[in-house]
Design a protein around this nucleic acid. Structure first.
Lengths: 189, 189
DNA sequence: AAAGGATTGTGATCTACATCACGTAACCAA
DNA sequence: TTGGTTACGTGATGTAGATCACAATCCTTT
């Protein structure tokens, strides 16, 4: 399946667009490729785009003053990623996004998204639905972080995304769970 | 300002509706009053509505097996609250919502919201924008929970919502921060 | 193949916070 | 007025996880 079909199938679950409408919608997306380790967004940058992942895996993360990293999101195929705070509020990025593997994305600018949302009710509907999903997932993660210990959060994460176990080094999983790599390692013993 | 004006001003920041359109929109909201301590949503219930707060303060919280409470949200005037997971996915509530003070809300059913979103592009636009704000705030709180210690999270919360200090008991603030009430109390010493 | 970095495991020690326990004061409702 | 509930502070002790230190593998890249 090529990137156009991937996006079409993804959108089709929520919004009904004619083929012509979808072609028009798709014309606003710019394909981009990145190599493993490359940076997509750096803290301090102006943020113009959001990214729809076609293949590979990215991480959106925050580095604090003590150079500790916290991962907000692993972005996998058919997921969207960006620094949404910076994107919507027209400020500079506070997080970084880079590539855990080689990556292909479709890039959509903030202004084009808003234009498309205004032009097509169905597209606005799609983006409402998408953010809803994200909001609910984020609330669940918040609750899990407060309520569950490391072991339980780790099991939960692997149950939800089994691919991560082999795809992503353990210290990144630790950074997602909010614990040190040593603590994560000791869970196995 | 009455509840209708409150909602109109709130919506007006994001969506442009004619007075007639707004009247129609408003006709779907049912006013409800609750006394301090009353329950709005109980875990296990079917969830049909979301609530727009006119006056007072509510808490949305989760109680775990060890009877420990975690507060997901304090809902104050012009905020929206519900169990959105249950509401959107048509499942039963996993959280409770009750009233910290006497409360007035406007109640909107899930099906009416969807109907209104379908009928008026501007209303769909409003709800997309609202969820966006919520999503961004939720991501920020997640990061703060991982990155900051209790003292810093407490200061952050009070800087953002100074009213809370006098409005809600300290053990509820502790439940929002995800620490014990004793730990919160010891921050002052 | 060798060198250098990244990844992972594991012991020893430290620390923020939880938990338990108790006391005081405020705020109800009968 | 009184008895009960809720709020809040604070000491003593326990514990999950952080931090530091070192070693063993694995993966790249030249």
């Amino acid at each position: 399946m090529n990137s156009k079909e991937t996006l079409q199938q993804h959108i089709g679950k929520t919004a009904s667009l004619t083929d012509e409408q979808f072609d028009y919608f798709f014309s606003y997306f710019k394909p981009q490729s990145f190599k493993k380790g490359q940076t997509v967004i750096s803290a301090g940058d102006k943020v113009d785009c959001e990214y729809f992942v076609i293949s590979g895996c990215l991480k959106a993360f925050f580095i604090n003053d003590e150079i500790k990293m916290y991962i907000l999101q692993f972005a996998m195929p058919t997921w969207w990623t960006s620094d949404y705070d910076a994107l919507y509020n027209q400020t500079t990025a506070t997080i970084d996004i880079d590539c855990i593997t080689d990556v292909e994305v479709l890039c959509l600018s903030n202004s084009d998204r808003e234009k498309l949302c205004k032009e097509f009710h169905q597209i606005e509907h799609f983006f409402r639905w998408r953010t809803n999903k994200g909001y609910i997932a984020s609330q669940k993660r918040l609750l899990s972080l407060m309520n569950n210990n490391t072991k339980k959060r780790y099991d939960e994460l692997l149950a939800l995304y089994p691919q991560l176990y082999n795809l992503v080094p353990k210290h990144l999983i630790a950074a997602y769970l909010g614990v040190s790599r040593e603590t994560l390692s000791r869970l196995n013993s």
